[in-house]
């Protein structure tokens, strides 16, 4: 194929372009925080008043749920960007038709879009952590370790979203992605621990990428550390890299027909 390999400089130039566009308005970042904050208030604090504490964790329910919702925040901010924003650039704006004739390779474009989405996920995550702080839901300074964790969450879902986008025929196809994203949000231990499920069901939950995301954010947020966090780190790095490779391959075929 014609375009192979990427360089930091070329990839960076696409990130710079996206940053110029996004800095025009705070709305996308704010709107990606609003929904999770509503969940935090209604379920974390509202329902939490009825729930009490989660067994084995010595914090109020809202503080337990918050890192789970933080994972979702990073996930959706990154995923939506490589889905809707990239799809719009491909199909409506034809932005890439002007980019492929420059020295940028398709690998540069794919990675540049993923990194831009990771940065958006990071901003949304920082915003959400600030809300947690205001609501008194930050229980350990170790939450600072969760911030780099959101980069990994963003990477996995930005790359996954980009791969999904290469299969979409039109905007209505994205409704199928919601059929996966919403149940994953509800069931990947965002609101309760894995031990709620019967033993036979647990591996099915553990295999979900959002479960692994919650793994790497919840423990530091609660000031706990287990070695199994490394499994989640490796899982997300591999998941993201495979998705990125797939997306790059398919984008090459679509952009360099």
């Amino acid at each position: 194929m014609i375009a192979t390999g990427w360089t930091l400089r070329r990839t960076g130039s696409l990130v710079e372009r996206n940053a110029l566009i996004y800095r025009r308005s705070l709305t996308p970042v704010l709107s990606s925080i609003v929904e999770p904050v509503l969940y935090l208030l209604s379920i974390g604090i509202g329902v939490g008043a009825l729930v009490g504490k989660v067994a084995g964790v010595d914090v109020r329910y809202a503080a337990y749920v918050a890192p789970g919702i933080l994972a979702t925040t990073a996930m959706n901010a990154a995923f939506n960007q490589t889905c809707f924003a990239v799809f719009t650039r491909m199909k409506t704006d034809h932005s890439y038709d002007a980019i492929v004739p420059t020295p940028l390779s398709v690998a540069d474009i794919a990675l540049g879009e993923v990194l831009s989405a990771v940065i958006s996920g990071l901003f949304a995550s920082i915003g959400f952590v600030l809300v947690m702080l205001v609501l008194g839901l930050v229980v350990s300074p170790d939450i600072l370790l969760a911030i780099p964790g959101t980069l990994l969450v963003g990477y996995a879902f930005a790359a996954g979203g980009l791969a999904v986008t290469t299969y979409m025929r039109d905007f209505s196809d994205f409704q199928f992605t919601q059929l996966v994203m919403l149940p994953m949000f509800l069931f990947a231990t965002t609101f309760y621990p894995l031990t709620v499920y019967p033993h036979w069901l647990r591996p099915l939950i553990e295999i979900l990428p959002l479960y692994q995301c919650i793994e790497i954010l919840r423990e530091p947020a609660l000031g706990i550390f287990h070695w199994d966090i490394l499994v989640a780190v490796i899982y997300l790095a591999v998941f993201g890299s495979l998705a990125l490779a797939l997306a790059t391959r398919r984008l090459s075929r679509q952009l360099l027909a």
Partner: peptide, 8 residues
């Protein structure tokens, strides 16, 4: 500007 950056 953005286009110039693509060319390094």
């Amino acid at each position: 500007y953005v286009y110039g950056r693509y060319f390094g």
